[in-house]
Design a protein around this nucleic acid. Sequence first.
DNA 1: GCGAATTTGTGCGTATGTATT
DNA 2: TAATACATACGCACAAATTCG
Lengths: 245, 245
Amino acid sequence: MAVAMKSCALARDPLYMQVCELLTRRIAGGTWKPNGALPNEMELAREMGVSAGTVRKALEKLEADRLVVRRQGRGTFVVDQAAPEAASRFDRLRRADGVPLTWSSRLLSRSGGEPALSEQRMLQVGPGEAVARKQRLLSVSGRKFAVESACLAVERLTGLDPDDREVGDWNLASLAQHHGVHLARAYEEVRLVAAERETAALLGVDAGTTLMLLDRVIMSIEQAPIEWRSATCHVRDEYYLAEVA
Amino acid sequence: MAVAMKSCALARDPLYMQVCELLTRRIAGGTWKPNGALPNEMELAREMGVSAGTVRKALEKLEADRLVVRRQGRGTFVVDQAAPEAASRFDRLRRADGVPLTWSSRLLSRSGGEPALSEQRMLQVGPGEAVARKQRLLSVSGRKFAVESACLAVERLTGLDPDDREVGDWNLASLAQHHGVHLARAYEEVRLVAAERETAALLGVDAGTTLMLLDRVIMSIEQAPIEWRSATCHVRDEYYLAEVA
DNA sequence: GCGAATTTGTGCGTATGTATT
DNA sequence: TAATACATACGCACAAATTCG
């Protein structure tokens, strides 16, 4: 580990970034379970042959990336990406009273195989890289709310069999956690669109009704697009909440 | 400065946070001009009687808060909040091709005085705290695009005369920079609304047309709401872009 | 083109403070 | 109270980027 700096003429990552990457791999590899504690900073420093300050800097970055949480007096813990707070962090729709929107879903269809052109563009995948798709009808307290199409870049999830049961109606957060991918952030585009005939029929509105279209691409820490979701929403009091930093 | 730690039994901010606050005040006070360089780290450490590491940590926080930028080999510089990149950071509307939307504006009206109830709620001000208001018609390449109402918590801008010329059709970024306020982030709510008669008339659309309503509150670093803007937008190809971290 | 000077970035080591168990 | 673990603070050395002669 510490060897790397002087012996290699090529520009390498700083030592703390290497520590960061190693810890990331170990967390993804399951060395420590979600909600489990990492060894303390001194311990990690000794194991890896670096200074405590270097480990500290690496852990600070991991915490900023939401892979771990650190608590004074307790320790450093692996964040459970499948826990509700973490998993719903990309859902920005709110009820009129500000509470995060919850819905029930009915699977309309699913498929897989080669990506369409739009999917290649949104997910930055080549024509040959397999994707999985699903289409769902979302309902909010009994009311038909949205038609959602989602597309997953399955090959970016290490060791995932595209025909696996869990790809059926996948849960992105837990799927990612179990296949070595850490979700970092999302880009979401909000548009107004006129309802097409089929969509209108599914939502029970007149064709041509103006709906809210949400296109969301969720990216991994390595900046690779993982999932593209396109939801056509029949909003009433509900709203989209953005926090601009 | 360094005295504070042991002599005082009360829980005080950590030293680096005190340095941070001092530097923030000095930047707001104009000790160093926008785009100007701060003294180097060693210098600051000597001046303030703290270690270089403490100054470093303070500067890292200031950089995270976008008050300064630091460049290896060059120095640490005050961010010009009025520069286009900084000032337009809260504008999330995009043209169809992804380019940030630009507009021209026509001032429809302006006023000031006691806040209405909605303004008290959105800006978290009391009934007695003065606000300033303006209403504008925004056009995009000749097309009437939006009716915008903005409301400013003038009393949060230190030393600002509510009847000042610059409050007429204020520029929030430069107004904030000149009155000791640092804009940190914004909360924006996106809704679908039916155009009311007056709004429809101003935008040249039929009453009842579905429009995009954007409610944005910009907050200072101290978490105080500074400006509330409510824009009713007649979007066509344009879209709202959110980045969810 | 090159080297010296300047400034931030990285890394190491140590001591002490503070929250938790 | 004691032990543990992260948080803060200090100081030093060298690497890397930038600027300038």
